[in-house]
Write a protein that binds this DNA or RNA. Structure first.
Lengths: 199, 199
DNA sequence: GACCAAAATAGACGACCGGTCTAATGGCAG
DNA sequence: CTGCCATTAGACCGGTCGTCTATTTTGGTC
């Protein structure tokens, strides 16, 4: 029987999922292991059986979140029913809807932890940087395709446009969270497509 | 003699300045009152004479930082030796130089605390939101002037352009911090002026 | 100059919490 | 039954915030 084994993996997975929830709301420092453990009914002692430290836990959480995010992003950016530019818009509007549903709270785990932890933990900084890089690459490919069919100007390298797009996106999320308003996101979507993502 | 009075004000001011230093590096939760006190050699008992709580202290720190930032920003944005658009570029490049000098650490206190505290403290959230609003207004005025003389397109409302500019700026700062590279800032400056702030 | 109320300083203290670690438990295989 | 390992349990340490009382300094008044 491997019921035990599967239980163990479930426990670890449960901790990760609860960890994502807690950390996206409270950040790293303000999140307590205890709170995560209470959420899933696992005693404190068990935690360090699955993870070496809080930092190690956060690392796993970042990877978990990144995996989920890419699994959400890629189908949208490769949806052949839409043109490349429409895919980008689809991504923006889907995420905007998420933000609305969350009342402009939480935002993006990667962005949140970046601001808080980049100067505190080199390990986490690298993981966060890599996650951002992966997103940037995905956007770059999509923008390249858009350039090929003339949907977006080819006067600027696709990677640079993707870079600007990423910066703006993260910044707009942050401002939406702070202002508790969707306006920064809406302005971003409107102007980004009107002034930048055009031919 | 009012040496005492001036000493008192100095003490409070000293605490604020040290507080800005600590919080911009470590964020809110990870900053300790004790660390700030040690920095300026003030005993703990005094702290709670000047501030009601850590949150109250943070509020004063935000106001202090915002005051300093506006005092830095306004002369640049009203420098009549430059055209409005050149002023915006001057701001970007001055700040880019700050970031380089700081090895891409710290970033912007307002942005840092926004990500960390918007969902944790309504009081701080409002203060941060107001600080952002002040910046937005300053940029809006400058962009309006640029539109008047045809340096920037008038096809889009100045406030919206300022909004996008703010989002991008904050996002680029965040990404620079995470990537420990000036590239996001450089890309932002290049493309923002090439694709958005043009006539 | 002497005095006093108020302001400011000093730092010990309590209560609490997070992260770590060691010891005990329990289930399962051989 | 026995040994082993995953898991559980909670004690422990260090550090935090915020309070508290005692002491010193100040500014104004007589």
């Amino acid at each position: 029987m491997n019921a035990r084994v599967s239980t163990r993996q479930d426990t670890k997975q449960l901790l990760l999922e609860a960890g994502v929830e807690v950390m996206i709301e409270k950040g790293y420092t303000n999140s307590g292991i205890q709170e995560v453990l209470s959420k899933v009914g696992v005693p404190k002692g068990s935690f360090y059986h699955y993870f070496d430290s809080k930092e190690d836990f956060a690392l796993a959480i970042i990877e978990e979140f990144d995996r989920d995010f890419m699994a959400f992003l890629m189908p949208i950016l490769t949806n052949s029913a839409l043109t490349p530019k429409e895919r980008l818009r689809s991504f923006c509007e889907t995420k905007r809807e998420c933000m609305r549903a969350a009342s402009c709270r939480k935002g993006c785990l990667i962005g949140n932890l970046s601001q808080e932890m980049s100067d505190q933990s080199e390990t986490l900084r690298q993981a966060l940087s890599e996650a951002m890089e992966r997103r940037l690459n995905a956007f770059t490919v999509c923008i390249e395709e858009a350039q090929k069919i003339g949907e977006i100007t080819s006067s600027v390298d696709a990677r640079l446009i993707a870079d600007l797009f990423s910066s703006c996106w993260e910044g707009a999320m942050m401002r939406a969270k702070t202002a508790k308003s969707l306006e920064p996101l809406d302005v971003f979507i409107k102007l980004m497509f009107e002034l930048v993502l055009k031919n």
